[in-house]
Amino acid sequence: MKKNKQIGGSTIHVATRRWWPLFLGPVVAAFIIGFVWPFFQGIYLSFCSFKTVSNATFVGLQNYIKAFSDVSFRHAFWYTALFAVTSLVIINIAAFAVAYALTKGIRGSNLFRTVFFMPNLIGGIVLGYIWSMIFDGILSRFNTSIMVNAKFGFWGLIILVAWQQIGYMMIIYIAGLQAVPGDILEAADIDGATGWQTLFRVIIPNVMPSITICMFLSLTNGFKLFDQNLALTAGQPFMIQPDGTTVKQTEMLALNIYNTFYTSSVASQGTAQAKAVIFFILVAGLSLLQLSFTRKKEVQQ
């Protein structure tokens, strides 16, 4: 019996060693087809002029020059940056506050957690339309609309993403807060630390990993925001310059890229592709920077 088992065990072991590519294959293939290949083709296309992707001609850096000299792209960049930072601050403070409150043993906190998490289950486009109805319903009482005032558009979008993401971040913070060791808290209590001191000196340093993750997520979410932006304002209102050119006041980077690709001429599809590559580098770079910055503040237990 014992012998047989060993033989069987090592047979499986040898087989796994020999046949692992077969098991890894489907996932790797899917990853290459769905991600790696399009990614590199995208980078290649950013140096091309094309209408359909199978029929592209190489044009060098021309697309990048056009992308950087585009006023609307620069506006979208600063607008997106402002939006990402604002939403990052609001979402994280609110999510942490809610998580903190819900780990204090309030009655029905499980129900509250579920309720706060729910909005996250609804898709962005749907949320955008729902909130545009809500905002329109309110603003029409004041004879105005989210489409006519860029300030409404900005804060409307902030409210929307806050509503959507606070619940999600809250779950991460709750997990972080529950992992803070009870003996440390007890020690702080015995040492006579006040509530605020415990929060800032003990709890926050201990949940730093959660804060890192949440800030990382909300920053990249802010930069990549697309559906909600499209559904809520689609860039309206436009600022119309005397020469007839426009800057879409509430257009974020992703929507700017989309608009460049689909609503302009053949010549601009390559430009849109170049913008997309710049966008990728930007988001990846910012996130890495942010990650390394917050990592330094983490406390190892």
Binding site: S145, M147, V148, A234, G235, Q236, P237, I240
Partner: peptide, 8 residues
Amino acid sequence: ATLVSALN
């Protein structure tokens, strides 16, 4: 879209 914005 630009015209709509102006008309709004």
